[in-house]
Design a protein around this nucleic acid. Structure first.
Length: 376
RNA sequence: GUGGGUGUAGUCAAGCGGUCAAGACACUGGGUUGUGGCUCCAGUAUGCGUGAGUUCGAAUCUCAUCACCCACC
């Protein structure tokens, strides 16, 4: 019996823990380290799937979508009927679905966590629903994504140690239930999620527990939830290596350019983040010279491209003045162009990171990037 | 020419004698990290057409004046 998703580790950087590998999925290979664009509602907002697939020089082969949202609307049975999520949204590459666990945390109000699962209210119509590990597996099985995530609890960052410990242990028990109820391992691979807050010993405990289950991949959850970056880096320093080196390591929810470098340096293979797509819709862009707010008055008559060092569609054809005009006028094109640029920027940066690791000069490239990009 | 009305930030305006001159849009800046977001937060009038006056106190009352609008000669 072969796992749906397997991982090949090609090379580890000599000076850091940065790794170069490949994820083999039923919908194609994914070169790592990789950044996965987020398409929560079965769409990368403001972009067509084929345009997403064509980003960067090598293209995008994996995206993330969301169990919680698709369960509520249109309903996972509709997606199953449509022939699965790939067909439904016309995405040819691989898909990773988040389990709905994060919404348990982000939807804070009106939810009740028990050993059985989580009772919550729909953000759409207020109706009551129950998510359990089994339910999350059922929904993700219906969606047919290549990688399905365990139903975990992402404890709030300000929770006390006692709660974090209880929560991580429950997350492990839920992970066992996920594994037990997920049958078709040749079609979809289940990834486990480490929790433990910012406590090194709890992270260790969580890692030991979930790794026992010998899953095809592991994620680090509970980070990038509002803590200072140094805290996140510190946790990563101590817990990435707790995960098996022959399995992909996925840092959930991280995606600012600086965090990608810091994550890769500490041995992370996969990232996802709404940041590039969300800030694009709010007139902000990542560029090789730092973050730019297109609404700022200085761009009024700036007819240079958004990023002179970028060869994306947006930068090849439009000026900052035009982009500012679109943003100020609330035109749909502003979301389209900036989303494309921001994703291109991260995807292309990841390509360069992979190349740098192959050539054993990750730190050099990192330095080069930050010299231009600035501190953050 | 006569009668009436209106003049408060870039715009539309609230206020109709008494702490700091509502609010909206626009403008300026900031935020956004497993997406409840084309969103959220913050800032911007030494001044209420102009000039006198009444009053302890006036954007608010009086007079004059200017501008614009409407109606009628």
């Amino acid at each position: 019996m072969k796992n749906a998703v397997t991982f090949d580790l090609y090379k580890t950087d000599s000076g850091t823990r940065a790794r170069r590998g490949c994820l083999h999925t039923p919908h194609g290979d994914v070169q790592t380290p990789v950044f996965m664009p987020v398409g929560t509602q079965a769409t990368i907002k403001a972009m067509k799937p084929e345009d997403v697939a064509g980003l960067g020089h090598e293209g995008v082969n994996i995206i993330l979508s969301n169990t919680y949202h698709l369960y509520l609307r249109p309903g996972h049975e509709i997606v199953r009927k449509a022939g699965g999520l790939h067909k439904f949204m016309n995405w040819k590459g691989a898909i990773l679905t988040d389990s709905g666990g994060f919404q348990v945390f982000s939807l804070g109000d009106l939810r009740k966590i028990t050993e059985e699962g989580v009772e919550f209210r729909s953000f759409i119509d207020g109706s009551k629903h129950m998510f359990t590990p089994e339910k999350s597996m059922e929904v993700q099985n219906a969606l047919g994504s290549d990688i399905i995530m365990a139903f975990d609890e992402c404890a709030p960052p300000d929770a006390d140690r006692g709660y974090i410990k209880k929560s991580l242990e429950r997350t492990t028990r839920w992970l066992r239930r996920c594994k037990d109820s997920h049958k078709d391992v040749e079609r979809q691979s289940l990834f486990g999620i480490m929790q433990g807050g910012f406590f090194k010993d709890l992270r260790y405990e969580s890692a030991m527990q979930i790794c026992e289950l010998d899953l095809p991949g592991y994620a680090i959850g509970g980070l990038s939830v509002g803590e200072p970056k140094e805290v996140m880096y510190d946790v990563l320093d101590n817990c990435v290596e707790l995960l098996p080196s022959d399995k992909p390591r996925y840092l959930m929810g991280v995606g600012s350019p600086d965090c990608l470098f810091e994550g890769v340096e500490r041995g992370i293979d996969m990232f996802d983040c709404v940041l590039p797509t969300r800030i694009a819709r709010n007139a902000a862009a990542f560029t090789s010279v730092g973050k730019v707010n297109l609404r700022n008055a200085v761009h009024t008559d700036d007819f240079e491209p958004l990023d002179p060092n970028c060869d994306c569609y947006c930068c090849r054809n439009y000026s900052r003045a035009y982009l500012r005009h679109l943003c100020k006028s609330n035109e749909i094109m502003s979301s389209m162009l900036l989303t494309e640029h921001n994703l291109y920027f991260l995807v292309r940066t990841m390509e360069k990171i992979r190349e740098a690791i192959e050539e054993d000069r990750f730190l050099e490239y990192k330095q080069e990037f930050f010299d231009s990009y600035g501190e953050f």
